[in-house]
Amino acid sequence: MSKETLFALSLFPYLGFLWFMTRSGKTPRLALIGFYVLLVFVAVTIPAGIYAKVHYGEALANVDWLHGSAEFFLTISNILVVLGFRQAILQTKKP
């Protein structure tokens, strides 16, 4: 199985994860937004990878400005997830 196929197939379990996390109503809102921003990262990375291959003849990882721009969305996603769960922990510690 190619890495591209595996990448495409991995989207379905993640969408299921998002569906359950959203339906549960127990996930901190900011963290949930962070999990959804990860989909933005995926949506940006795919065309960026295609552009890198077509325009530069390189893999996305070898085109620094393009790779860094795509990774920005992963960083934002991670920050939102951490801040969301941090906020939830702090709220449970309040008297």
Rank of each mutant, 00 (worst) to 15 (best):
V82Q: 03
F72V: 14
D64M: 13
A31P: 07
F41Y: 14
A61P: 01
A43E: 07
L74Y: 09
S69M: 13
A48T: 09
L80I: 11
V81N: 01
G84S: 06
N62A: 15
L32N: 07
V37R: 06
N62F: 12
N62V: 07
V42W: 10
L74Q: 11
F35D: 06
I76G: 03
L38E: 05
A43K: 03
Y56F: 15
L39N: 12
A52E: 00
I50D: 01
R29M: 13
T75C: 11
F35A: 13
S77L: 02
P47S: 04
A59G: 12
V63A: 02
K53E: 13
K26V: 05
T75Q: 10
V40N: 04
E58D: 07
V82T: 13
V44A: 08
L83I: 12
E71F: 07
A52I: 04
I50M: 14
V82F: 04
L30W: 00
N62P: 01
N78M: 14
A61V: 12
H55I: 14
R29Y: 09
V63D: 00
G34Y: 01
V44N: 01
T45P: 01
V44T: 02
T75K: 11
F72K: 11
A52N: 03
V54K: 13
Y51I: 15
Y56P: 02
G57W: 06
G34Q: 00
L39G: 13
V54A: 14
A31W: 01
I76M: 11
Y36Q: 05
K26E: 13
G57Y: 06
E58L: 15
V42H: 08
L83P: 03
K53F: 11
T27K: 00
I46K: 07
